[in-house]
Simulated assay, not measured.
Amino acid sequence: MRSVELFVGAGGLAMGISNAGFRHVGLYEWDRYACDTIRFNKERNVGPVRDWPIYQLDVRSVDFTQYRGIELLAGGPPCQPFSLGGKHRGREDHRNMFPEMIRAVREIQPKVVLIENVKGLLRESFAKYFEYILLQICYPEIVPKENEDWTDHLSRLEQQHTKGRYHGLSYRVVFRLLNAADYGVPQKRERVFIVGFRSDLNIEWSFPNPTHSFDALLYDQWVTGEYWERHRVAKKHRPDIPDKLKKRIESLRMGLRLIQGAPWVTVRDAISGLPDPESEQDCGVPNHRFNPGARVYPGHTGSPLDEPAKTLKAGDHGVPGGENMLVKPDGTVRYFTVRESARLQTFPDEYVFSGSWTESMRQLGNAVPVRLAHFITKDIRTRLEWSVADAGKAV
């Protein structure tokens, strides 16, 4: 099955899609540093990356009709216009590329559309524009008229949607806010995913259920103790049970809470096996170099070792103060190395980031976790395959 992706960045979503069995026929990214990372890994003959057709272009210059009829169109339009840490300009931000994403839907007419973006897109201040995005994906051929205000275009889309009869290109669209930790990613990263199946396929689909849970982690740590045994942490070195979790843990111990799925994956799980970058600065592991200067700020205190990490952040001009840090057992903090951050985003160790620490961390902070992307697109691919099989039986 073929796929096209826009706004590829460092390739997290693209790698997850490749791992799910899709074959990329076009990958578009304008940022040269992100493209350098992908090209560097292509040269190193890394996994599926070796065959990626990466184009360093502004998507506004691309004629997407060349990809008409592919199975999957994916992308994560720049999140800064809607990010909680951004300037919150939304549709008025020059980086708002949702119009180009929707143009690609209209010109390609893929079987499935997959879009990822930040949690901030769901804020009340963007609610009306978010509805506008969804309805444009539902009816990509109902385009704005010349000089038509977007709110007037929204009204026309709403009228069509409530009418219920439409014979043009349309999609059945759903969205959900997902926490990457619930799918085995060692990071509490909440992102909005929008999925649309082309209406003529008559496919029913819903987001796959979570595979991991916080309760399972608490049970593993504080009821059975298997977590500490697995990491060979002696009892005298184990932290105390947090007071705010004691009642919850007691309920787990007594079987009063239902445990679902595997334990959340923690920072300790993710970086296990990597040498300490402070004491072994020439360890030979790519991207695993210590970067000094980490400091705690009010509200920004780093990620505990025995939980999934806090959300990795990019920032417009490098890593924001107090972010992307590890809290060590003695309470001090240090920055995550690029390799540790790549593990938190579930990139394979063979995937190397080119450029400075600041630039590599920016790419990682903007990336989609590979494991989460794989999990969602694998489910999409399975549903498409079922659809083809059902169509064959009907014939």
Rank of each mutant, 00 (worst) to 15 (best):
G47N: 05
M325Q: 15
D240P: 02
K378P: 00
Y166F: 13
F175K: 04
D379F: 01
D276I: 06
R334I: 10
F7R: 03
P239K: 04
G21I: 04
A20R: 04
I249F: 03
L134P: 04
G299F: 07
E92L: 11
A216S: 14
R339A: 02
A391S: 12
Y297D: 10
A181H: 00
P275N: 10
A180C: 00
I376W: 02
V338D: 01
L178V: 03
S199F: 03
C79A: 05
F336K: 01
Y351A: 00
P208D: 09
E100M: 13
E385S: 08
A389F: 07
R253F: 10
L217F: 12
P144W: 00
E148T: 04
T151V: 10
R123E: 13
I194R: 02
A389K: 10
V368E: 02
T382H: 06
G273S: 12
T377L: 05
P320S: 09
V338Q: 02
D58P: 12
L57W: 12
F290V: 13
L218E: 13
K128F: 12
A127K: 15
R295M: 12
Y227Q: 05
S3Q: 02
T382I: 05
F347M: 01
E323V: 11
R191T: 03
G75P: 04
P99I: 13
G69P: 04
F214Q: 15
R238K: 04
S83N: 06
G331R: 07
Y183I: 02
L305E: 05
A234R: 12
A262W: 11
A234C: 06
R2Q: 14
D63G: 12
W30T: 14
N287Q: 10
S251I: 07
K128T: 15
R383V: 08
G261R: 14
K111F: 12
S125P: 01
E204K: 08
V4Y: 08
E43L: 13
L157Q: 07
